[in-house]
Design a protein around this nucleic acid. Structure first.
Lengths: 359, 359
DNA sequence: CATTAGCACTCTCGCATGGAGAGTGCTAAA
DNA sequence: TTTAGCACTCTCCATGCGAGAGTGCTAATG
């Protein structure tokens, strides 16, 4: 992927135009500082830069440049006699114009796609797998939301008898999601009756949404009315559940980072991840499929996320289902790796839902 | 629940017979020490005990008794001039003969059972709810495993057409679990054909296990053979999945505890919880339904769990499905509360699976 | 004029020091 | 058997100090 394309694909609050203009050597030094800081989590000293990055100038010159980069707001100092640390703006600059994107390695990709092929049995299983894969590839904490229809529609109905008056209602939705609900009928129903009813409803109500089912329930009589009513409930619930249902994995990855060395910080983060409704709020507002959005440090509104960055992508099919995959980590994360991982897993998820949708 | 019953229901490594005999005052003091330590996490001083528990003796007398309890192995000292801390044995004694069991409060129970009634739509949803409820009730981290048939058997089959040669196979298992798998057929199949096939297989193979389906697949021809083969795979996979599939919640609860103040300790714990296969190993070996097992501190073999206790219960139906619910926390946990919560949620889960099984 | 060597200055970190406070263990008296 | 009294021990915290790392500035250099 060339740099121009990369620009279009990485969204952010500050447009690239706001970024200061830098000379080649300044760019080189900034890149080195950020690389080094990402690797070590320690403020970067001028001497270390010259030594480790084989710069052709002396430490004093580097110090002058560092002071300049600091004046531009790209770096800071924790205190007078400490090395430099990137600011949010520094990371942004890095992201926009210094960073090579890194897709997962080919053999890594092979393993992953193999795993995904194995696991085609269940949406929930996909999501868990996607979360754990993304966590491993990015080495950060991952977040994955289920694919959800913009407006859920019914595809197939089945009523499985459990007991005389108790049936397990299984509804397959447009997009391949399977919902089940236990239903207590007011009158007994035979196996054949239920089977016939399933067939008829599948034929008649295929493509129906919650509202249409609600209407149909008013017209139907007896057992059929109860079942259609329950279906309407399932679809409504399914619409409502969007956003509450979030999968995460890899908390351990970010807990290993020194910025979470302090207990309180860790706890805040875990609380955030375990609170699924708050988690859903983090999702980026408007995002096209395949685009990757990065929110660095204070670009996130949430107080808990100071010092953290989010990398998010959207997956789905045009006009069909939509879901999100993303990672959370310290601002000092390996953006190249994270963005590559998010893009890759997002693509896998898009492929999966496309297959289920039958396009 | 009276004390005798309680004894029978709380399993543990060390049988009650091994516990030392104590006088009434010693029991009172031991109970006070443990209560206090559970509440404060600080070593308990003789003076504080007299003051806060209105003991009728002086601090010096309490000190003598404390020294005795220490000799019996029920308490320790972090260092010469510190207060007393319970040992694993001390907690065990407390559990066996000093502790009143605490079920969740009635209005708490009402809220919970209401939530469970609402959520009857999906096994995965139950499990998440059970985990989150248990975490809240116990104020510890919770672990819940899905109900799994000792040997999975088919109950109902459905083939939902997605595309010309692509079908979504939905299998309802004995016990109410729903499994789905996407299947690519080698030849196109019509909607009616698939529907008829689903009906026939439901009739013929109801109650079949993975092995019987494997045999049937060899006899069937064409599309039917492919579908039956896939079903056999689903059941085999479903058997294999037992133990890998674990839900947890409430990590934040135990992270708030001072024993996890240090970053490393937290990380170890999160790693353990996120690693589902290792988590499954914690399950107690043999346990009857309704019985609650407590493993205190070093009674757990796992190194990560030094300083932690597990409270586990088993739920299910006699001869039917089996699952586990449990909590993990520091040895200094509120055992009364945890045991009550585990027992209560276990009972709820048993009720749920009983309903789905249709007993 | 950009670059660099040299050097003073600043700030952190680790370590030792030294009470203050809390709590025990022991002894002797009630 | 219980208790008051007291010496002793250990932690905890604040303080101070020296070493080390790294910067910022100045003046010299190509």
């Amino acid at each position: 992927m060339d740099q121009a394309q990369q620009h279009r694909n990485i969204g952010g609050r500050g447009p690239a135009g706001d970024l200061p203009k830098l000379g080649e050597r300044q760019r080189e030094i900034l890149r080195a500082v950020i690389r080094e800081f990402i690797a070590t989590a320690e403020p970067v000293a001028s001497g270390a830069l010259v030594r480790r990055y084989r710069l052709a100038v002396s430490a004093a010159t580097v110090r002058n440049e560092l002071a300049l980069l600091e004046e531009l707001g790209l770096l800071t100092h924790p205190h007078t006699s400490a090395g430099r640390v990137p600011t949010d703006l520094g990371y942004r600059y890095f992201l926009e114009s210094l960073m090579p994107e890194a897709m997962p390695l080919p053999d890594e990709q092979l393993t992953v796609s193999h795993q995904f092929q194995q696991a085609q049995r269940d949406t929930a299983e996909w999501l868990r797998l996607a979360a754990s894969t993304l966590a491993r590839l990015s080495a950060e904490a991952s977040i994955v939301t289920p694919p959800s229809q913009v407006r859920g529609a019914l595809k197939h109905v089945e009523a499985v008898p459990i007991q005389e008056r108790r049936v397990l209602l299984v509804a397959v939705l447009e997009g391949g999601a399977v919902r089940q609900q236990l239903l207590e009928l007011s009158a007994p129903a035979s196996v054949d009756e239920l089977r016939a009813l399933g067939s008829r409803l599948t034929d008649e109500q295929s493509g129906a949404d919650s509202a249409r089912l609600r209407k149909a329930a008013a017209i139907e009589r007896g057992t059929a009315a109860e079942i259609v009513g329950a279906l309407a409930g399932i679809l409504a619930e399914s619409d409502a559940a969007r956003g509450r249902d979030v999968y995460y994995d890899g908390i351990q990855n970010i807990l290993a980072q020194p910025e979470f060395g302090h207990g309180d910080r860790i706890r805040e983060m875990v609380v955030l991840l375990e609170d699924r409704t708050r988690l859903a709020e983090l999702l980026p507002p408007a995002l096209r499929d395949g685009e990757v959005h990065v929110a660095i440090g204070n670009e996130n509104r949430l107080e808990t996320l100071r010092g953290c960055s989010l990398v998010f992508g959207r997956y789905g099919t045009p006009g069909g289902v939509v879901g999100y995959v993303g990672v959370v980590g310290p601002t000092r994360m390996d953006y190249a790796r994270s963005i590559g991982a998010v893009r890759y897993v997002g693509r896998l998820m898009s492929d999966l839902v496309r297959v289920v949708e039958g396009n």
